[in-house]
């Protein structure tokens, strides 16, 4: 399953009933809120919080169906960037017609590595979610789920749902006001997944993706606006879309 920033591919139906043997190895840590780095060059992202077990990921991928299913969910570990990033990239790009440059991955993982979770089976990466959390338009602290992918053979077992839940809980722990994402209008399974968790379709985005497909923006409010600050309040349209007139934006309007 892959839900990307642009060009998401079709999804199999995720099964919301969790697999009986599915265990969560690591719960999301309560993380200190980290402000968005302002220095042009960011310091290395050192691991926050207590040291936790992190599965070593085997780079060798197999196409065979899973036999034993001891699926564990682990946070991304920046110390293992060299090996983990490669498998993350491989997993996501195998579902996309156009891969993202390495920079996109680093953009997220370097700044919000603690909002990335991996699903691992017997040392192999089988699912990943990548996201970010920042103040949006000077108001709400908005989480954004950028990419979600589950290896083909593992779909329909609630793995994607579990990954998204981990991210939501991590964002809740960091006082997010809301979470947003986009998904292709034809991606029924992904939409179902998010709607099942409490997201609502807030907008229809015409021809949002480069392949000409439209998207829904899905939003989940975590706190009422008198506590947080749900930002859009009609005024500002997100990101680049409002400025799209004759400006030739190319990939996707992410903000």
């Amino acid at each position: 399953m892959t839900i990307g920033l642009a060009q998401p591919s079709s999804l199999s139906t995720p099964n919301n009933s969790p697999s009986p043997i599915q265990t969560v190895v690591i719960r999301p840590r309560p993380l200190p809120v980290r402000s968005t780095p302002t220095a042009p060059v960011c310091p290395l992202n050192h691991h926050h919080g207590p040291t936790l077990f992190v599965a070593r990921i085997n780079l060798a991928m197999t196409d065979s169906a899973p036999t034993s299913s001891q699926i564990s969910y682990v946070p991304y570990d920046p110390a293992q960037e060299a090996t983990q990033l490669e498998s993350v990239r491989e997993l996501i790009s195998s579902e996309l017609s156009e891969p993202y440059s390495i920079y996109v991955y680093r953009y997220f993982l370097y700044q919000w590595g603690d909002l990335c979770y991996l699903a691992v089976d017997s040392g192999q990466l089988i699912g990943v979610v990548i996201s970010k959390l920042e103040v949006h338009r000077g108001a709400a602290l908005r989480g954004y789920i950028a990419m979600l992918a589950v290896r083909h053979q593992y779909r329909g077992r609630g793995i994607a749902t579990k990954l998204v839940q981990l991210v939501i809980e991590a964002m809740v722990a960091r006082n997010a006001d809301e979470i947003a994402l986009e998904t292709e209008v034809t991606n029924v399974a992904a939409i179902k997944l998010y709607e099942g968790l409490g997201f609502l379709r807030s907008k229809h985005l015409h021809r949002y993706y480069l392949n000409g497909n439209s998207a829904f923006r899905l939003v989940l409010y975590l706190r009422p606006s008198n506590e947080g600050h749900h930002c859009e309040h009609n005024q500002g349209e997100e990101g680049l879309n409002s400025e799209k007139l004759h400006q030739g934006c190319s990939v996707a309007d992410i903000y």
Binding site: L44, N45, P78, E81, L85, Y100, S101, Y107, K132
Partner: peptide, 15 residues
């Protein structure tokens, strides 16, 4: 993995 990033460099540009 270290990121060299101009503060004005947006996700849109990264993508």
């Amino acid at each position: 993995g270290q990121l060299v990033k101009n503060t004005n460099f947006t996700l849109f540009q990264a993508v």
